[in-house]
Simulated scan of single mutants.
Amino acid sequence: MQLLINLDVPDLQAAETLYRQAFGLTTGRRFGDDVVELLGAQAPIYLIRAAAGSDGAPGSPRHYDRHWTPVHLDVVVEDLDAALATAIQAGLHPETSIREARWGRIVRLADPFGHGWCLLQFIGRGYDEIAT
């Protein structure tokens, strides 16, 4: 299975700049004026320009206010404090303080397009610390 990540955004250039600065991604291919590929994660991320108010699903117009979704993206980092500072400078907003767990540290963020993100720093054996 090949996994592709698609993120709807209202402003393609702003989103491309944000994710490049926040996560160190690079621009891959462009598909016309409405899609750009970002590389540097384990799966490519495609930013898709979609206007606010257009149908995201039948009867469910897109909006880019912060919204809950059952899907969010986790970014594993070596240094959570440094990565958090970079993400904030790029334009993401912390939704929680850094939380410590047996497996590592985590902080939840939101981007200006309504998407949820988490930064994770594994400590010791990471998730293996709690796996059964």
Score class of each variant (00 low, 15 high):
M1K: 06
L3V: 09
L3G: 00
I5F: 00
I5E: 02
I5T: 09
I5R: 02
I5L: 10
N6Y: 09
N6M: 09
L7T: 00
V9D: 00
D11G: 05
T17Y: 00
R20T: 10
R20K: 15
R20P: 11
A22S: 07
A22L: 04
G24M: 10
R29E: 13
R30E: 13
D34Y: 11
V35W: 03
E37T: 01
A41W: 02
A41V: 00
A52D: 03
P58R: 00
S60N: 13
D65A: 14
R66Y: 12
H67E: 07
T69H: 14
T69N: 13
P70F: 05
V71D: 05
L73W: 06
V76L: 11
V77P: 04
V77L: 06
D79E: 03
A83E: 09
E95Q: 15
T96I: 11
S97A: 07
I98A: 00
R99A: 15
A101E: 08
R102W: 09
R102Y: 11
R105F: 02
R108D: 11
R108H: 13
D111L: 10
D111R: 06
P112H: 07
P112D: 06
H115T: 02
G116C: 09
G116A: 13
G116S: 14
W117I: 01
C118R: 03
L119R: 03
L119G: 03
Q121P: 14
I123A: 09
I123H: 07
G124W: 10
G124E: 09
R125N: 06
Y127T: 11
D128S: 13
I130H: 08
